[in-house]
Amino acid sequence: MPTGATVAALTTSLPETPGGERNWDYRYTWMRDSTFTLQALHYLNLDWEADEFMQFIADLESNGDGALQIMYGIDGTRDLTESTRDDLSGYAGARPVRIGNGAFDQRQNDVFGAVLDSILLHTVRSKRLPRRLWPLVQQQATCAAAVWRNPDQGIWEARGAPQHYVSSKLMCWVALDRASKIAGIRGDRSAEETCCATAEEIRADILEHGVRNGVLRQHYDTEALDASTLLAAVFGFLPRGDQLLRATVDAIATDLTEDGFVLRYRTGETDDGLSGKEGSFLICSFWLVSALTVVEQVQEATDLMERLLSVSSPLGLYAEEFDTSTGRHLGNFPQAFSHLALIEAAGRIILHERMRELM
């Protein structure tokens, strides 16, 4: 309150690696979080809060090309220029202590899909499409259609060279797929067909260039795995019985885990512009729970969920990462993304169980 924005975390510079440089300021609202936020709020029947958040998104100032930034201040501030407080040391002596976030002006092509999926979720839930949101739908769909072929920094805000990240292309597919569905709800058949055609073009490109040995990869020029490709299951990019989807989920469960928890990627295989190792990303483990449920591996999903629930803090909260060797939570705390993914994962398991009871 009073803006309706949500905050990624209330803290800054809690280290992802003890004593390392992966220390970020998360006291802002990310567009990437929007669809997971709306999903979680609606799961919990917090419809008023969901509407407040949608009103916040509708009021945001876009860039010159009509695209929303990847993040804003909780009052809608656009300039989040990053600086360091060299007179301070962070938790356990970690440096630097950062104020602001240098990723605010990065090009991350997943932002369009997150915004449009959240608008579709809210439209279906509220049974209406607010008139003031339709121009935003058109802008974000137009931007996604214009940039999906371009490399970007990816969902993890890598500070290395731009790449053709599979998850970014996938979220551009989400943008055009959801824009098509929203246009259908509005009765705009021309926009519906145009967006649908572009979505299919993006899907074909991903399947042609983003697959190695039957598995979705991090980007078009690597064999490396990336947990963000689990979003193919979360957002319905491929049908639940699809062999590529199953193989991708199995590969991440087998080859991108440490001590049963999922990594974002292996730092030795990824140019993220930083040094040092990081812990397992909790959101990625919750995504794996959701993905396992989608591909009907529900026992494996439930086992992983129980393992994740067992490592929460005494207050039942989670940071961004979990160090399996020490049992410590790492990164900013409490981290909204981790909890949003937990709610979705739990919701999917519960829904599956209830559907099975009705059969």
Rank of each mutant, 00 (worst) to 15 (best):
T3V: 04
G4T: 10
V7S: 07
W24C: 05
T29M: 00
R32K: 00
L41K: 07
A50H: 02
D51V: 11
M54Y: 05
D59A: 15
G66E: 03
M71Y: 01
T77W: 05
S83H: 04
R85G: 01
G93C: 03
R98K: 13
G100W: 03
A103H: 00
D110G: 03
G113I: 00
D117M: 07
S118G: 10
P130I: 03
A141W: 00
C143Y: 08
R159M: 14
V166L: 15
M171T: 00
A175P: 02
E192R: 12
C196W: 10
G214R: 10
V215I: 14
H219M: 10
T222R: 13
S228H: 08
T229M: 12
L230H: 10
F237K: 01
Q243S: 11
I252G: 03
D255H: 08
D255M: 04
D259F: 02
D259I: 09
D259A: 13
L263C: 13
E278C: 14
L292R: 09
V294C: 13
E296W: 03
E306Y: 04
S312E: 09
G316S: 13
Y318R: 07
S325V: 15
L330D: 00
N332P: 10
A336K: 03
I343T: 08
R356M: 11
E357Y: 11
